[in-house]
């Protein structure tokens, strides 16, 4: 069971989140139709590691592309294209660079997108997890987990949320 405060303005939500955090209440999550500038610092979201994942996917792509082309074009079935010598990888490598670059980008982009979808579990056919349908439209929501907040009762939290300017407070 979680407690939600629904807002119709992102500025009000940011101020509300600041008020709650200053009272020692942990904001578990914020739902918004668009990224809210600076909200991650206020509610203390951990730094994303998607960049590290992206780097790893990228160098995987680089390695695969270079290894693949050196096997296809140099070792397995040497091909002479444009009269270029084909008996050593190093003599042909400039021709491989554009494809290596493209494959690096392909792997990094797809890898990051898939990681993002899987990590957030927003794959096709998955049930939507947002608490209120309008958080993908024109409303914003703060999520609290009353069991984790020892200092305040659920009723206190509800009234505190209402004080921050919510349009609706509900449980789900």
């Amino acid at each position: 069971m979680k407690l939600y405060g629904l807002y119709n303005d992102d500025g009000v939500l940011v101020d509300g989140a600041k008020t709650l955090v200053s009272k020692g209440i942990k904001v578990n999550e914020v739902y918004s139709p668009f990224p809210i500038h600076g909200i991650e610092r206020i509610i203390g979201v951990r730094w994303t590691r998607i960049a590290i994942a992206g780097f790893l996917y990228g160098i995987t792509g680089t390695t695969l592309a270079l290894f693949g082309m050196s096997y296809f074009m140099i070792q397995d079935w040497p091909m002479i294209i444009g009269g270029k010598p084909n008996f050593a990888f190093i003599l042909n490598v400039p021709a491989f660079i554009p494809i290596t670059f493209e494959f690096t980008v392909l792997c990094a982009a797809h890898g990051m997108a898939l990681t993002y979808f899987i990590r957030n579990w927003t794959l096709p056919g998955v049930k939507a997890k947002n608490p209120h349908p309008r958080t993908t439209d024109d409303h914003f929501a703060i999520e609290l987990v009353p069991e984790d907040i020892k200092d305040y009762s659920k009723e206190d939290l509800t009234s505190l949320l209402k004080e921050t300017g919510t349009v609706e407070v509900f449980e789900k």
């Binding site: 444009g82 009269g83 270029k84 400039p94 021709a95 660079i97 554009p98």
Partner: peptide, 12 residues
């Protein structure tokens, strides 16, 4: 750099 180099290297 690479665009200039590769075209010249390839066409030779």
């Amino acid at each position: 750099f690479f665009s200039q180099f590769m075209l010249i290297w390839y066409s030779n």
